[in-house]
């Protein structure tokens, strides 16, 4: 187990390094740099622009910039923002906190709702109810995320019951909570269809298993049936999905944040992408990648804990069987 964990962590580190190199290469592909836009300002001479490029080292070759960046990662700075002139770490950190506040809440809420809907649909004797939920989810899935967020925002303006965008006017908890409602609802609505679909499928699959049928036939009370047999059996595919959810904590909410004006990673990243504030983009990519890799790792560990078969089936397969 420990050895497996070490191996995975090593893998993760290698992956992150590869992603950072890949990001730098990708960023190099798009034409123009941060200073390009200064060329349109009639008040700024080309000499000033090139002096700026030299100061920030953006005219240096790619490998030089990459190694400089790696060095600054070791210092905990993750490079510096070309636009803001401050270390990327200090720029992104408060925003990452805001994003995590939003997405963690949304993750909990959407899993809660998805499980409740899934159980209700699978347990209900009425097939129509299951179909209704499935239909509703399909409809929701069929609406672009951007549109869901926009329409929610519009409703907020029209009804005046929720604040329109932003995070808080004061530092009070209640105020933050009221600002959270809209973006959380938007995120739940956009992630729910996929989750609910998988939960429902997993539950139906496990309900159809012979031993559950047998348990049911034996008259085991529904509460015990669900919590002791059905849900644990259905956990397997759901855990991987949960891993994906964790992996998406920093990236799933970007557009919703931009539309709803949530002061998270989304707005700053979008601006950085278009203004070629490269170190900010790389920094944000790396943090999201970290979550993605960790999400997968967490999911695998949970699988490992939940399902003994996995130990033989998947990982140490090659080593142990030979």
């Amino acid at each position: 187990m420990i050895r497996y964990l070490w191996r995975r962590i090593l893998h993760a580190a290698a992956i992150l390094l590869l992603i950072s190199a890949g990001s730098f290469a990708f960023l190099e592909l798009a034409p123009g740099d941060y200073a390009t836009a200064m060329r349109l300002d009639p008040g700024i001479s080309p000499a000033t622009v090139s002096a700026w490029r030299t100061r920030y080292g953006v005219d240096r070759p790619l490998p030089v910039r990459y190694f400089r960046w790696l060095r600054s990662v070791l210092r905990g700075e993750f490079g510096f923002s070309l636009a803001y002139g401050i270390p990327v770490g200090s720029l992104l950190w408060p925003r990452i906190r805001n994003t995590l506040l939003l997405t963690t809440l949304a993750l909990v809420a959407s899993w809660f709702v998805a499980l409740a809907l899934g159980v209700a649909a699978a347990a209900g004797s009425q097939r129509a109810f299951g179909n209704l939920i499935r239909g509703g989810m399909s409809l929701l899935h069929a609406i672009p995320d951007v549109l869901i967020a926009l329409v929610l925002l519009l409703l907020a303006v029209r009804t005046g019951s929720f604040p329109v965008g932003g995070m808080a006017e004061t530092a009070r908890v209640g105020d933050v909570a009221s600002h959270l409602v809209l973006p959380v609802v938007a995120l739940v609505l956009t992630s729910l269809p996929v989750l609910a679909r998988h939960v429902q499928a997993a539950l139906q699959e496990s309900l159809a298993l012979p031993f559950i049928q047998a348990a049911r036939a034996h008259g085991i009370p529904p509460g015990r049936l669900w919590f002791a047999y059905v849900l644990p059996t259905a956990a397997n595919p759901l855990i991987s999905l949960f891993g994906y959810s964790i992996g998406g904590l920093l990236s799933a909410s970007l557009l919703v944040e931009v539309i709803m004006g949530w002061p998270g990673l989304g707005p700053v990243l979008l601006e950085a992408i278009f203004s070629r504030d490269i170190y900010v983009v790389v920094g944000a990519t790396m943090v999201s990648a970290l979550f993605l890799v960790m999400g997968n790792l967490v999911a695998d560990l949970m699988l490992y804990a939940a399902d003994p078969r996995i130990r033989w089936e998947q990982y140490p397969r090659i080593r142990y069987r030979k």
């Binding site: 907020a156 303006v157 005046g160 329109v164 965008g165 932003g166 931009v258 004006g261 002061p263 707005p267």
Partner: peptide, 18 residues
């Protein structure tokens, strides 16, 4: 100064009295 991200968001914020 409240930073809202886009011109449409500016207008929304203004229209809602924020």
């Amino acid at each position: 100064f409240e930073y809202v991200g886009s011109e449409d968001a500016q207008v929304l914020r203004f229209a809602s009295g924020g």
